[in-house]
Amino acid sequence: MDAEITLRVDGEEHRLTVDTRTTILDALRERIGNTSPKKGCDHGQCGACTVLLDGRRVNSCLTFAVAHDGAEVTTSEGLAENGELHPMHRSFIEHDGYQCGYCTPGQIVSAVGMLEEVGNGWPSHATENVSAEGNAGLSDDEIRERMSGNLCRCAAYANIVPAIQYAAEHGEGVERGGNA
């Protein structure tokens, strides 16, 4: 069964007819031609498909497009502005926060979404005391836990953590969460 929807992807509006069974991930990859988010498991178990959906990081593989008519979707491709790489992009390159590159766009989108969550004062499993006032800060352990929804079989994790720390510290326009 088909439905007409509009998705705003990386700032550009797309009207399309989708099968109700089509996920945002497949709509992006097979219909719109945006293959920045990847299909690693198609079941919300790896994070390679992470996009910002109306500003929040989600697994686009578990999201029916039909249920998100009018939504704003940001992929890693869309983080680049006017051909300029985003500070998180540059930091991943510099810190070699990837090898095969397949989980990477999802990691980067996730990192950008994560910093905003930290900035909003959201706690994590790594936060010592969830009841405490104030912000959890951005320790390496906080990053590790908050980025655990993005699997990397090449295991670039120990480079991803400093890549995110660096971008948070130095990246212009990157939200610096926390008071650490």
Binding site: E77, A80, Y98
Partner: peptide
């Protein structure tokens, strides 16, 4: 190929 990989391109 880093610039391509990080953008997903």
């Amino acid at each position: 190929e880093g610039g391509l990989k990080v953008r997903g391109a």
